[in-house]
């Protein structure tokens, strides 16, 4: 029935009988949910901004160059140089300077750049899956969905490694060798909440992936479900852009 309602009479968008945005209610609901979730993340980032601003500016270090060698006592040494004190926010490049399998070298922000890359890449595979869905190309959809899931899992793995390293250096929810305890607590809560979103995104992707394999959407006649989880997945990427900017760069 009425399959052509959307294409006819586009002038009369708000007149009832169809969507003013020409999207289905399902996609609209996903957009609205993401808008609301954006506010949740904003509240956490605002808390971060507030607390960050109530401390003094980071003392930047220009003495330690990338690829310098790290000793085990790096943190203590920097502390003694007065770079990590309770009143000043720590300079992120001195905190996040490790890389898996490479010990003892100061690699500031290298690892987090890799994580960013992984997440962007998984976003690309996701959008390729959506595009393939428009063409009803089941094999391509399943291929790209699979890659997206791998990307998400890789990101979570990276985050687990970063957390482990950070905790290994003595950071907890109520302690931080790099200066204010709030820094570590905020790091864990913001990246943790983002990681939780990535995790649920991966779970959703897995479900959709199996549905694609089972041909559910082929039967339904459209791959809108892939689009919807795609929106969610890109949103997770979007949030990471801001977490990356505010936590690691500023």
């Amino acid at each position: 029935m009425a399959t052509n309602t959307l294409t006819t009479n586009t002038k009369f968008t708000w007149g009832g009988g169809k969507s003013p945005f020409s999207v289905s209610y399902g996609k609209l609901m996903m957009w609205i949910f993401l808008l609301s979730d954006a506010f949740t993340f904003s509240s956490l980032l605002i808390a971060y901004g507030f607390i960050r601003y109530s401390f003094l500016e980071p003392i930047r270090n220009t003495i330690v160059k990338p690829f310098d060698h790290l000793s085990h006592e790096f943190v203590r040494e920097m502390g003694e140089k007065g770079l990590f004190v309770k009143e000043h926010w720590p300079s992120p490049e001195l905190v996040f300077n490790h890389f898996p399998f490479i010990h003892g070298v100061h690699l500031p922000l290298f690892f987090v750049s890799l994580m960013t890359f992984i997440l962007i890449f998984s976003s690309v595979t996701m959008v390729l899956a959506v595009e393939a869905g428009h063409r009803m190309a089941k094999d391509e959809v399943s291929k790209y969905m699979f890659l997206t899931i791998i990307g998400g899992a890789a990101f979570l793995g990276c985050q687990a490694w970063e957390w482990t390293t950070f905790i290994g250096e003595g950071a907890t929810l109520h302690g931080n060798p790099f200066g204010p305890t709030s820094f570590a607590a905020l790091f864990f809560i913001v990246t943790g909440f983002h990681g939780f979103h990535v995790f649920s995104g991966v779970m959703l992707n897995v479900i959709i992936y199996f549905n694609v394999l089972a041909g559910t959407y082929e039967k339904r006649g459209h791959y809108e479900m892939v689009e919807k989880v795609g929106l969610y997945w890109h949103f997770v990427d979007l949030v990471w852009v801001f977490v990356f900017t505010f936590f690691y760069l500023i």
Partner: peptide, 25 residues
């Protein structure tokens, strides 16, 4: 509701952490 409740959600989350996990937000 959609735009304001999430902010309370974020706020409550931090409060729960302060209560139960020793943070000091």
């Amino acid at each position: 509701g959609l735009l304001s409740f999430p902010v309370l959600l974020g706020g409550s989350l931090l409060l729960i952490f302060d209560r139960s996990f020793g943070t000091s937000f």
